[in-house]
């Protein structure tokens, strides 16, 4: 309404954003952290099922406790794209594409939004570097606590996706590197094709258990093996 007063805007204050370092300094007492699928005890299942994994149609792994950063900005702004590349060493991927380096990946989410995934202990450093490198109209939000990644691999991984999503996962429509946000069971997932027989799904924390239950059910006919997360280098996290 027109009788609302315009607030006095302090430019310096708006330029400063509260960036939270979510992990303790090295050397300090470790903190307990639980991934969204902590309660499922996947690591224990992985050890118990190690012998079956060769014959399993689907191998599932939670890539847990990674650093997830949502970046928003204008992809047509060359400086924006260059700055992201400078920090991550990755090209800002175009529509429905993803890019990955050894320790970082970036997924296209929408025309002005990307998801950057880095090792959990690097989220703060990468966010800080991005904030220093970027200028103008952009946003970065650390959403690490809000979602997790479930990877599916093996000869039947695609069959499980065919049961779970209306999206066409055939080679001609879903080549390696492509990423789509779509319906998964009765929720949503950001699905990336990581390799010939390997796929990754970013799912919401509150739906992780539902996805896990759904996947156990839909993988049963192909044989499901759970794998330990070897890439979790966040040593300050103790789950005991």
């Amino acid at each position: 309404m027109s009788d609302v007063l315009t607030p006095e805007v302090d430019i310096d204050a708006t330029a400063k954003v509260a960036v939270m370092k979510q992990l303790p300094e090295p050397g300090l007492r470790p903190v307990r952290a639980e991934s969204p699928l902590h309660h499922a005890q996947l690591d224990e299942m992985a050890v118990a099922a190690a012998a079956d994994s060769a014959s399993a149609g689907v191998v599932l792994c939670e890539q847990k406790l990674r650093g997830h950063l949502v970046i928003r900005g204008d992809s047509k702004d060359r400086q924006f794209a260059l700055s992201v590349t400078k920090v991550l060493g990755l090209e800002l991927p175009g529509k429905l594409q993803s890019a990955r380096a050894k320790d970082a990946s970036i997924r296209w989410i929408s025309p002005d939004e990307w998801l950057v995934v880095v090792p959990g202990d690097q989220a703060f450093a990468v966010e800080t570097q991005l904030r220093e490198a970027l200028d103008g109209h952009f946003a970065i939000v650390n959403v690490s606590g809000g979602q997790t990644i479930i990877s599916l691999s093996g000869p039947s991984a695609r069959d499980v996706l065919m049961k779970s999503t209306p999206y066409d996962v055939h080679d001609r429509n879903f080549p390696i590197g492509k990423v789509v946000t779509t319906v998964f069971a009765k929720t949503q997932a950001v699905i990336t094709r990581a390799g010939e027989e390997s796929w990754e799904m970013v799912v919401r924390r509150s739906f992780a258990d539902y996805c896990w239950l759904w996947l156990q059910d839909s993988c049963a006919e192909f044989g499901l093996a759970v794998q330990q997360d070897k890439g979790n280098k966040t040593m300050v996290f103790q789950t005991g």
């Binding site: 529509k95 429905l96 929408s110 025309p111 209306p166 999206y167 789509v180 779509t182 319906v183």
Partner: peptide, 11 residues
């Protein structure tokens, strides 16, 4: 027109 792809109505 943003994803430049056809998708199912349930999306």
């Amino acid at each position: 027109p943003h994803c430049e792809e056809h998708r199912e109505e349930e999306e």
